[in-house]
Structures are given as structure tokens and as C-alpha cells.
Design a protein around this nucleic acid. Structure first.
Lengths: 245, 245
DNA sequence: CGGCTGTTTGATGAGTGTCAACGAATGTGG
DNA sequence: CCACATTCGTTGACACTCATCAAACAGCCG
């Protein structure tokens, strides 16, 4: 594992490890279910969070086909969720940053519809779904937050359904990730991304080789740079240009 | 307007028009929010539905940017929802059949994120969101149903994010639509689809011409036929083959 | 050191978008 | 009811993007 990666993970994790009053002290609570809750509601929410756990790279949080019991929230690090498509290939359907909820697709069928895997040493919180529903009855704001999160997920997902060229797809992905890093207090121009190019290619639905060539082109044009998992955005406006065609 | 279309619309609509006890008598209540509700809960749900309305072709239900107030459920007919992508072009993000909920993407921002338009003479029910939340507090099963619907939406959306060739994309779309018609009591092998090829192409993210050529190829191979808005599936297993590659 | 895994590079061909033009079907106004 | 305009679907030619195959390379690990 690279030094830069270890540094970054240490950075991600240094605020954690205190399992009491998880949410109150969590760096990303404003982006997560606790958003807008008062102390009383927050305490109630914390009471249903049964555990926070640290995982190593490549460990799974839940697996496609497993019985659905809980939602999971990224606390630190990063995760990918994958499905198996009709022709049997694994496909990445999303990447999850701190504060983002995983497992939502299991609600409707009581079975996880995807597999979540840590991309680096990471940590997450486990929220038993039935417990969450119980407190949601007493605290409408928690219910509303959950619905908002899901609504946002639907919206983002539909918008990404766009048909763009490979270059624009990558540009959009980078802008999207950049925005999410910024929302979490990191630089939106340079950040550590523990995602392999293969995984980015899978997520964007293109061949690994194509992605490599596009990265090279963008680097030559001094738009972005991706080396040793450090993504650097050199020309933000050009990035937007590419997307708009 | 064609005879076949008018017939079909009449067929869709003939059960409606009684605005009392809407849900109890609705043909698609088992696919909709009322699913699994007892009489008491159903009455409560019906009490928040402020209106059922019939629209002509091309009329909009809500518009991108408008303040979000209500969810809408298709009662009969069909609707499309559209967004404007980064380069300014209109893109269709979904088609809605009876029992399906529209407007979910407005929840998180209090603004509709898409525009919904009737594809034929259609009818829909309006469910004020605040009213729905109020009764969801008293009737947890309603809350759970809403969450399930949204979860399903997320799942379907992510799965569709697949990267397939144009032929497979169309095959998948047809299978998907067919399944939804079947769930509503119609034949899954021949049905009226008030969607223009242009709209299908936009939804699938391909050129109109490409879609036309693929339809022709599939017709020559006697897999499916699409003429005068009547879609006929001739070889269901071949359709699945195409998807699996 | 050799064996991994992840990334790069080149050559090639299939699939698709684009442009242009036309035909068919539909809607409109007199 | 007919002439016209408009939308919708079809067809052909062409260029270009991108997936695929094959091979080599770089960094990392034991």
C-alpha cells in the first residue's frame, strides 16, 4: 500500500474511534441522517446505531442476495457497490464517501441487491432498518431526512443516465467526485481517490484502455492529472466545457 | 389520432371517472401506495388525495423548477418525465405506467427536478406530500410502502445504468415494459405503447436512426414488431439471449 | 529474483452518430 | 374534402469513437 494512501486513511480516520456519541462528533453529520436534528432526536438516532466498524481494503459490508437488515453509512474512507449484470459481469454502480448511505436498494425486497466493498481501510456505521423505522414514527424529522436522502439518490441516478462520450463521462464523474469532496471539507482541486482506473472504467461503462487514453489526453491538455491515486484538477472550466460539449 | 390508440385509451380509462373511493376500486392499487393496506388505512390515504385528473396528450403534470408540493400517481394512460442535460438537450429519464409514482425527485430539494408529460390521454392522482407525511406518522405501513417504492426506484435506476449495445438496450427496455404491462393485467406479448420511436431513442440514449434500424433488424429476425404503436413480442427467449449477449 | 496486479500502447474492425434526403402519416386551415 | 405543413420514420453514405485483442511495461510483493 502506498504512503500517500496510508496518510490519507489516517487523515480520514483520526477523528473516529470514539464509539460514544458517534453522530454528534462526526465530521459529516450535516450531510447524513442527523442533518437538522436537535439533541433529543440525535440521541434517539444514535441509540439505534448498533456498531461502528473499521474494515480493511477489499472487505465487504454486505453482499448481493444476503437478507436485508440494516443500512450502512460510510464514516471514513470509501466504498464501492457492485451488481452482476445480465451477462454475468460485475459492474460498479456507485462509490460512497463519508456520510453516504449504503444498502438502500435492499429495502424493497428485503434482500441486498448489491455488494459493498471497502476500497481502502474505512469505517462505517450500521443502522438496523427496523429500529430506524421505529424511531422515525416518533420523530418525523428522521423520516423526512431518510426520504430526502432517497429522493436525492433517485435524482442523481437518473441524471447520470445521460449519454455522453467517454471524455465527457469522465469529466462529469470528476466534477461530481470533486463536489462531494468539497462538501466534506477537502480540497476540490486535489484529493486522494483510492479507486483503480479499472474500477472507474467499470463504473463509467467503458473499457479500461479507453479510460487510460482519455486520462492521458486530459493530462496532455493540462485539464486533470491522475497519478498514484491523487487526482488533480488543473482547469476546472475546461472540465465543464467538455461536459457541455 | 389512430383508432387503435383511441381504443386503447378507452380501455385504459373505462374503469375510472368515479372519483369517490378512488383507491379501493382502482385496478392498480396492489402495485401502488395502497398495497397491503387495510380498510382503515386505505380510507386515510384516500382522504389526502385531493384530486384525480384527466389530461390530454402533451399536457404537463409538473415542470422542472416548479415548487414541489405533491406526488402524482398514474391512474391510466402513460407519462414521460424529462430533464435537460448539461448541453441543453431534453432527455427522457422515465416512462410511467398506471400505479407508478411521479415527482419523487422533488422531495429532496422542494423543487421538481423533471417535467412530466402525458403521452396520450391519461389520468393521474395527486397526493400532497405534506398530507402524506402526516398520515405516514400515524400509519407506519404507509411510510414503509413509500420507502419501498423509492427503494425500488433506486434499484431499477442503478441497474439500468448498464452499458450494453444498442440492440441489447432495446431488448432490455422491451422486456422491462412487457413485465410492467403484465403486472397490470395486460398481455405481455402484445400491447399498445403510445411512445414515439424518437422518445424511445432519447430514453435509451441513442440516435433515432439507430433505433429505427434495430427495430427493422429485430423485425426481420422475427423477434419483435413495432408498428402503429403496437408492440408485439414474437420470440421472448431470443430477446433474453440478446440481452445476455 | 520472478510473479503479481494495474496501466499503457498500438493495430484493427464493428457499431453508431451524423448529415442529408425522402416517404409516410398526421394535423391544419380553407 | 382537399392542399399544405408538420411531424415521424426510413434509408444510404460516411467518419469517428470506442471495444477488443495482443503485447509490453511499471510498480509492488513475497
Amino acid at each position: 500500500m502506498l504512503n500517500s494512501e496510508q496518510q490519507q486513511i489516517a487523515h480520514f480516520n483520526k477523528k473516529l474511534l470514539n464509539t460514544k456519541s458517534r453522530c454528534q462528533k462526526c465530521a459529516v453529520n450535516s450531510l447524513c441522517l442527523p442533518s437538522g436534528l436537535n439533541d433529543d432526536e440525535l440521541a434517539e438516532l444514535e441509540s439505534v446505531i448498533t456498531s461502528s466498524k473499521i474494515t480493511n481494503k477489499n472487505q465487504t459490508v454486505f453482499t448481493l442476495g444476503e437478507a436485508f437488515t440494516s443500512l450502512f453509512v460510510v464514516h471514513s474512507g470509501m466504498f464501492k457497490t457492485t451488481v452482476v449484470d445480465e451477462s454475468g459481469k460485475e459492474r460498479i454502480i456507485s462509490f460512497h464517501l463519508p456520510g453516504e448511505i449504503m444498502g438502500l436498494d435492499g429495502i424493497h425486497s428485503n434482500v441486498y441487491q448489491s455488494t459493498s466493498t471497502a476500497l481502502a481501510m474505512s469505517s462505517f456505521c450500521k443502522i438496523p432498518y427496523n429500529g430506524l423505522l421505529d424511531i422515525a414514527e416518533d420523530y418525523p424529522v428522521i423520516q423526512r431526512n431518510l426520504l430526502k436522502v432517497m429522493s436525492k439518490e433517485i435524482f442523481n441516478c437518473k441524471k447520470n443516465h445521460l449519454d455522453l462520450g467517454s471524455k465527457a463521462k469522465l469529466a462529469l464523474f470528476i466534477k461530481n467526485i470533486s463536489r462531494r469532496f468539497k462538501a466534506r471539507g477537502y480540497s476540490d482541486e486535489e484529493f486522494f481517490l483510492p479507486i483503480s482506473q479499472r474500477d472507474i472504467a467499470s463504473y463509467l461503462g467503458m473499457a479500461e484502455e479507453t479510460l487510460s487514453r482519455i486520462f492521458k489526453k486530459l493530462q496532455k491538455q493540462e485539464v486533470v492529472k491522475y497519478s498514484k491515486h491523487i487526482l488533480t484538477i488543473l482547469d476546472k472550466s475546461e472540465l465543464s466545457e467538455i461536459i457541455e460539449h
